[in-house]
Design a binder for these strands. Structure first.
Lengths: 200, 200
DNA sequence: TATTTTTGTTAACAGTGTTAACTTTATAAG
DNA sequence: CTTATAAAGTTAACACTGTTAACAAAAATA
């Protein structure tokens, strides 16, 4: 069929837009991304981009989604090391930090660190998938500690907020952050685990 | 002296710029703030604004500074209730949350929640003043618990990151946040206090 | 009163996202 | 194989953005 060839060409152009957009973001930051700059890079006129993406935010939303997939992947891999309970919580924290450290640009887009209209971008669907995986580790730890009072969803939110807080503060001043999880974060994670085990 | 009258007029115009800027921010969010919009509101041409502020970011930086002053004020007031040690930590957490809940726009500007160039705005000087007041409460708690191993500066960073994390996550989805400090935050604060007392 | 300084203006530059109108190219039908 | 139709990609424009240079009007100084 000829249509599939055409469709392939369209797909390739879309991927070219994505690739060139990412190059701009990587080199100049997401705030430097502009439709005209992408158009220059792909050697097309700017309105062409609107045939592949609804608007500029849709392009950034693509990287937000991509980031959540990468994060989820990293978390799942860290859980494959057959640990149970609180060790899983520690593993997630480590994976989360390392993801943010290695994918700073993704992280900034995902959590609206500088995004004007974060509401539209924030793809809560992708966030929920990642959430469910973290939730498992927390539920696990709670049941091992016989903690039936604590709300696991609240604990999840606490855990995520904590981790995000460290990274957000880090990204406020420094552009790059240490790939090794800092003692402060590990310390805070221990405090969190404490509330999982003994705060009933 | 006639010069003071002129200086007063200049000061008044600057305050008018600030007042009208804040109106725009309050009604449409900081991302809607534009030089031309301010110019319209104060009934002057746009280049006039540059006589009073170096650029647009300087106007936002003004609100960032103002926010830090308000935050510091709230924290200091919360400490006036003659508590000592960990009660102070709890009081600060409460005050911090309430500040963010009542001054959402200030908070967004202060912590670059949507700010393109947060580096230039982030007035680390104001941040340090607030820091020193929080540090006191932490040092206090550590000494009461006879914890001489823990680094108080690290603990401060942990505490701040934690609090900010909760608020940042909250502001990502909702525009308004509950004025009452949530259980989750109080819970996390307890976990943090635990690391102050027993993590040696 | 004449001169200098300050204040505020208009106009412009170089950008931004986005869209309407038009042309060119490719596909489908007769 | 030509013609009608649909899609792709273009230019030009709209309505904005921050910022600055050049100029006019008003005030302060000599």
């Amino acid at each position: 069929m000829e249509q599939t060839r055409r469709e392939k060409e369209i797909q390739e152009l879309k991927e070219l837009i994505i690739a060139q957009s990412w190059l701009i973001i990587k080199n100049e930051g997401w705030q430097a991304l502009s439709i005209r700059k992408i158009a220059d890079a792909i050697a097309y006129s700017s309105p062409t981009i609107y045939k592949h993406f609804e608007n500029k935010e849709a392009i950034l939303a693509h990287f937000s989604k991509e980031g959540y997939l990468l994060l989820d992947q990293a978390i799942q891999e860290s859980l494959n090391n057959a640990q149970k309970g609180e060790a899983q919580v520690r593993a997630i924290a480590k994976a989360y930090w390392q993801f943010a450290a290695t994918h700073v640009h993704h992280y900034r887009i995902m959590f609206g660190l500088g995004i004007p209209a974060c509401e539209t971008i924030n793809s809560s669907y992708e966030m929920k998938i990642t959430s469910s995986h973290i939730l498992e580790a927390i539920t696990n730890t709670l049941s091992i500690a016989n903690n039936s009072i604590a709300n696991e969803h609240q604990k999840l939110k606490t855990f995520w907020s904590m981790l995000h807080g460290f990274i957000a503060i880090e990204l406020l001043s420094n552009n790059d952050i240490s790939k090794q999880i800092p003692e402060t974060v590990e310390d805070a994670v221990e405090g969190f685990i404490f509330t999982l085990k003994y705060n009933k």
